[in-house]
Design a protein around this nucleic acid. Sequence first.
DNA 1: CTAATTTGCGTACGGCGTACCCAAATGTAG
DNA 2: CTACATTTGGGTACGCCGTACGCAAATTAG
Lengths: 267, 267
Amino acid sequence: MTTDPTPAEQLRRSIDLLWGPSERPARGPKPSLTLDRIVEAAIAAADRDGIGALSMRRVAGELGVGAMSLYRYVPGKAELLALMLDRLILPGEDVTQAADKGWRELLEAVARDSYRLYLRHPWLLRVNWTRPVMGPNSLAGVEIVIAGLAGLGLTDQEQIGVVITLDGFVTGFVRQRILYDAAAEETGVSDEEFWSQHHPVLVRAMESGNYPAMAALSAEAYDASWDESFDFGLDRLLDGFAVLFAARRGIPPPGPGETRAEDQGGA
Amino acid sequence: MTTDPTPAEQLRRSIDLLWGPSERPARGPKPSLTLDRIVEAAIAAADRDGIGALSMRRVAGELGVGAMSLYRYVPGKAELLALMLDRLILPGEDVTQAADKGWRELLEAVARDSYRLYLRHPWLLRVNWTRPVMGPNSLAGVEIVIAGLAGLGLTDQEQIGVVITLDGFVTGFVRQRILYDAAAEETGVSDEEFWSQHHPVLVRAMESGNYPAMAALSAEAYDASWDESFDFGLDRLLDGFAVLFAARRGIPPPGPGETRAEDQGGA
DNA sequence: CTAATTTGCGTACGGCGTACCCAAATGTAG
DNA sequence: CTACATTTGGGTACGCCGTACGCAAATTAG
């Protein structure tokens, strides 16, 4: 990362690329590439070989052009990454279909859609580490949620708070999963290798008496799949939202949401 | 990142570094450095100049040695990053003090402690992108939470689920904050610049009619500080946990937790 | 036609992680 | 004490990276 040339100007260019159509100048030769083709090729390369192997030279190579040709279309690598992000981040069909089904179904659809997106392109979370340039697609996602929260008696700040909280949970959770899951493929260390490597020290740690509560857990404690854990966390969070929404309407809060608790104790 | 040399072996070395005391060999000259000093210097450099400027050459320079000397103590940069992480991730005093105050206080303390840690060292989240090598300190944090959840009638899987969910929320939220907050300093683009650059396109977007719900929000909708937003999200999540815990005991769930009626919000 | 302008891109620079190798330092064995 | 085994410090070098610079070829305006 050798990023010097006036970061403010860099930001301005990113915004223009995201929102502006940018008319062709009339004087020179026709461009042989398009911004879309470059972004597409970069996404394909990142999906195939991981973000670590994504370089300007490689993207250029995929397109059969010289490395520096890309700089006629994109100011730098950071801007290309921002474009890749906004290209993929548009809300899926499940979300638009759930838009009028009540807040719980909607938020659940949004969370799952986002979860799936990040799993499909695990490098997305690593890309999104520079200051985000808000593009049209990311705004569209927020719009759907805010629209779905109307009429629940929330303040405007609370509505934004729900958006931030939900997104925080999803990205944080998926980050943990990718940490274990997808990193396995990148590094070539399988899950079995990972745990068998850790096994001796973990056994010694548990037997040391320094972690009594963890040592007391049954072996099945860690058996839940990632998807099950995601559902668990999402249900808890939506339950928490429900408590607030109910309080805003003066209605007593219900019991836990999708949870099939055998000893259900409700209000 | 040129990481090739047998990733499984790399993992094994990381584990040994984290857990093993590694006795000195008796034959050669005494080492002039220690692993601790290297990790410390690396953390200081990352705090000062950001993770982007952290290179092996720089860390070596801080310590007044040649770049390649570091490789006598650490197999590679990835392992150094893992060590930096585990060094910092130990639970703070607030957490150990809250350990016997009931689950809500404890989880709140854990979340806030972790939140503060990540804000103090914003590069931590970017470091933690390779497969995590579980160290003694990260286990200690889990231990405290699991111990605090005992006696609530949760299954073992649910206890782990709470840990994962809480950590997911905290890391996801703090990631969003760092995105806006700390990236500002790194890039040198101030918050005012950022928003003023975006302003024209956002105004145009709102006037386009494509985002009616967002356009209807008042200007104050985005006024909440990050800390207020964090409190909002954390309260919702803990409320959600409370619903489950109450159901597990057959006790009717309470209203919203710390929430002070009308002055709650999101950023 | 000529002039203006834009595109593709070869070359080059400074920085990175780290493989390789060797001299210096330190211990042990005799 | 000497000879040797072993380990440390680190210089050099390689192959990557992002990208600044500048120029020939292509295209259009006048």
